[in-house]
Write a protein that binds this DNA or RNA. Structure first.
Length: 841
DNA sequence: GCGGATCAC
DNA sequence: TATGGTGATCCGC
């Protein structure tokens, strides 16, 4: 646990780490060295700078080591020098520009800027009460907690998104977590409500455990550690104002009242209460800031850190007083580079920032000087903006030098694979692929390429990335490209608007005529037989992967992706009237945009836009020579109009080689459908692929039996679901499990379930869990949309693994920033009923 | 749209 | 021990 936590939190940032690496006295040492050295600015650039936050706890040896390291001419250091030189040049340029400014120009600028100041002043909003909560010494505190010398005791260490759920949401249901250890709350409304609350509603109890002798010891340890001698834990400091210890009313409600405290109704009291509850819950302290806007609140929380709080009252003068002597480096958004540039202009404090406003408007970009002006006036955001849509996703890795093209390509592919998995988890596809390289001299390069249709699979991304990499390798040729970092990023995602549009189009398309599906189960064979695959495939080299790779090589586009990306959307952007275009496409059969239809079986373009004809072709194609002996085709006349046809890949040992490709394509198309499931809203289809767990190396890609036995079972639930047990051509397996959402099969214990969407092995042997996972993979976006839209109070169904202990700590950083995307649970019934409603419209 | 850079966490 | 990873944004081109 401990190791994990440290790993997880360790990603958060050097600022925080520095806090624990350097004490004040140590900083003095650093400064001495710094002042005596000829390495002007470099140490500052390297982050040995205590302006931003206090530094604590540390030994001189470490610092000397680091300085030694820094001065001995390492590649890293050389690069820092180089960057610093560049910055100095930038500053030089700025100073030259400054010299050219005439007093006339400055005067004019002054008038202009002051006009803006007037406007800004008029729009100043002091009516909100924003709180910023910042967990103290998060890493070290966790480490302390897990230190075996402190007695072993279970503690509730959690992230902000956990305190979400458990504490912060009570004060602001829309509070905004920022990473693992910070959050903003708007408690304006809550404060009004609380005014009328009786004392009992504001009473909180000490954790009974904390009254034991052991805990007193614990508190002492922690107090030492927190470096704030008078302010740890449930210290008197926390309750010195209105809050009263109420051990004088033991009659009120049993013995526990003795250990309770009542908080008042002011903002300060509320924040004390929050901090008290956080500490009782996690045994970690928090600092907090209270102010009329987010920027001020954040700076306030830093003001009395650790384990303190500070409030800027909602008065203009109080705001300006706070800002007056504040070093600009304390301002969020002003980093070490901006600090140095401003310092060159003689600007160190926020009041100086205000004094030089005219000059700044002439030297910096509009966005920059506007921001400077806001800062110097103490203006900031008064509402907590919801995180918007994700704009990019990336993965990068640092390693010891890699200099052979072969290794670089294989690494690149690996990164693409990882990224593809993450993208598919969120159902994202992007048009721009960016390759990032850092050479052994620490020089960073990015190379980007934007392609016409969005990409999301390993192969698709790699196809772009490998070209970018190749270009870079060629550029340095005949020398080898020597790198220490490689990264791949995908950006340019479809907007939510475009996604909705796409989903509706697909839904309508599927509803409009016959359903198309690519598998049918063979009568007389148990589903278990289809599910259990006696092959040597592994997740990474799975059947689907092979098909995908083959498809990529042949430049064959995915059926539905093709439909969506290229046909449905073909003319959309050029259309001036979106709504018009929308209605045009929803009746896809008549759409002029849909001129070309790619048959998923023969992969040939069909010129007809008539769905009947297309279906006829499809039927013929499937019924024809392609699949004669091995694949049985059925139009399934017994089913109603919208039921799914099942085509079957039967377990025939005598599959002819010439038929393999077609069958491959068939299965490949099956995969296409599944990967595009997010957009297609075929939300409850499940593809179950079970393979025997065998080593990767033993895989035989060309084994026909492998291919033939690797059967997708597609269970179609909606819009017109055929319950498996009711489909007369299907034999219900004995251990079938029926639930509200789907039919499940039980996996054999020694089998491994592989999600066909994300291609990851699933730890569970329960098909229920597995299906749940596939559902998540396929439908994340849709589920989220639906659950957001509906608020019916049905039972909450946890969609994540049930063994999700401490998940909040394991969330990937994109989830840290976007807790709403973590989708910890959904209201399944709502989702299903809504889905039916939607599909039947 | 691309590439470098800055910033936050 | 040797110096992270992810995401957003801005600016100049």
């Amino acid at each position: 646990m401990h190791k994990y936590l440290m790993t997880s939190f360790g990603l958060a940032g050097t600022k925080s780490l520095n806090k624990f690496l350097f004490s004040r006295s140590a900083m003095d040492d650093i400064k001495k060295v710094y002042n005596n050295s000829c390495n002007d600015g470099v140490l500052l650039r390297m982050g040995l700078n205590d302006n931003k936050a206090g530094m604590q706890g540390l030994d001189k040896e470490k610092i000397n080591k680091i300085i030694m390291e820094a001065t001995k001419g390492s590649r890293f250091y050389e690069n820092e020098l180089k960057k610093d030189k560049q910055l100095n040049q930038r500053i030089e340029k700025m100073m030259q520009l400054k010299e050219k400014i005439t007093s006339q120009q400055l005067l004019k600028a002054q008038l202009q800027v002051d006009k803006l100041v007037m406007e800004l002043e008029q729009s100043r909003n002091l009516s909100c009460t924003i709180v910023h909560i910042d967990m103290d010494a998060f890493y070290a505190a966790v480490e302390m907690r897990d230190n075996p010398e402190l007695k072993e005791k279970p503690i509730a260490v959690g992230s902000m998104s956990m305190l979400v759920r458990e504490i912060l949401a009570e004060y602001d249901p829309n509070f905004m977590p920022m990473g693992l250890d910070e959050a903003y709350l708007n408690i304006t409304e809550y404060l009004e409500e609380r005014l009328n609350w009786p004392e009992d509603k504001r009473r909180w109890y000490f954790n009974t455990e904390s009254t034991t002798e052991n805990d007193k010891q614990d508190i002492n340890m922690s107090a030492k550690f927190s470096l704030n001698e008078d302010a740890f834990s449930s210290s008197p400091l926390l309750f010195e104002d209105n809050a009263s210890l109420t051990d004088d009313h033991p009659e009120q409600r049993g013995p526990s009242v003795v250990n309770s405290v009542v908080f008042g109704t002011s903002a300060e009291e509320v924040v004390k209460e929050i901090r008290f509850r956080i500490e009782q819950k996690t045994r970690l302290t928090a600092s907090a800031g209270i102010a009329p806007n987010t920027m001020l609140a954040k700076m306030c929380s830093d003001h009395n850190k650790p384990n303190g709080q500070y409030r800027i009252t909602p008065e203009r003068q109080a705001v300006l007083d706070f800002m007056k002597d504040l070093p600009i480096r304390k301002v969020p958004g002003i980093g070490k580079v901006t600090e140095k540039m401003l310092k060159a202009l003689g600007i160190v404090t926020c009041s100086e920032l205000y004094q030089q406003r005219a000059l700044l408007s002439l030297l910096f970009s509009e966005a920059s000087w506007h921001n400077f002006l806001d800062v110097s006036l103490g203006l900031g955001s008064t509402h907590l903006e919801k995180d918007g849509e994700r704009k990019s996703m990336s993965t990068e890795r640092t390693f010891s030098e890699i200099n052979t093209a072969e290794d670089q390509y294989s690494l690149c592919r690996e990164l693409c694979r990882d990224l593809a998995q993450e993208l598919q988890k969120e159902g994202l596809k992007g048009k721009t692929v960016t390759l990032k390289l850092k050479n052994v001299n620490f020089e960073v390069k990015t190379r980007a390429s934007t392609v016409p249709s969005s990409v999301s699979t390993e192969e698709e991304i790699f196809a772009v990335a490998k070209d970018l990499l190749g270009t870079e390798i060629d550029t340095v040729s005949p020398h080898p490209l020597r790198i220490r970092l490689m990264g791949v990023r995908v950006s340019g995602f479809l907007s939510e608007e475009e996604k909705k549009y796409q989903q509706k189009s697909i839904t309508n398309f599927l509803k409009s005529g016959k359903e198309i599906s690519f598998l049918r189960l063979e009568p007389g064979k148990s589903n278990q037989e289809y599910c259990t695959k006696n092959s040597e495939a592994t997740p990474r080299g799975s059947f689907f992967d092979k098909k995908r790779a083959a498809r990529q090589q042949n430049n064959e586009d995915l059926f539905l992706n093709e439909m969506v990306d290229k046909q449905l959307f073909h003319d959309r952007k050029s259309s001036a009237n979106f709504m018009e275009e929308k209605s045009k496409v929803t009746t896809i059969q008549n759409s002029a945009a849909c001129k070309i239809f790619t048959c998923p079986v023969c992969f040939e373009e069909q010129r007809s836009s008539n769905l009947e004809e297309l279906n006829r072709h499809l039927d013929e194609c499937l019924a024809g020579s392609l699949v004669k002996d091995t694949v049985e085709i059925s139009k399934n006349k017994n089913s109603k109009e919208n039921t799914f046809n099942f085509f079957q890949c039967c377990k025939n040992e005598n599959v002819e080689v010439c038929q393999k490709n077609k069958t491959d394509q068939l299965a490949g198309t099956c995969q296409s459908t599944s990967t595009s499931g997010n957009s297609a809203r075929n939300s409850t289809e499940k593809f179950t692929q079970i393979v025997v767990d065998k080593p990767h190396e033993e895989r035989q890609p060309s084994q026909l039996s492998d291919m033939a036995q690797n059967v997708c079972i597609k269970q179609s639930l909606l819009p017109k679901r055929i319950p498996l047990e009711n489909a007369d051509h299907l034999e219900k397996p004995e251990n079938i499990e029926e639930t509200s959402s789907s039919c499940f099969f039980e996996a054999k214990e020694d089998n491994v379930l592989v999600c066909p969407v994300c291609n990851l092995e699933q730890k569970t042997t329960s098909l229920m869990s597995f299906n749940r996972h596939v559902d998540i993979c396929l439908n994340k976006g849709i589920i989220q949309e639906l659950t957001e839209k509906n608020d019916c109070p049905t039972k909450t169904y946890n969609m994540e693994n049930s063994d999700r202990v401490g998940l909040d700590l394991q969330l990937h950083s994109q989830y840290q920033k976007r807790p709403s995307q973590a989708i910890p649970s959904i209201q399944l019934k709502c989702f299903l009923s809504d889905y039916v409603a939607m599909c039947s419209v």
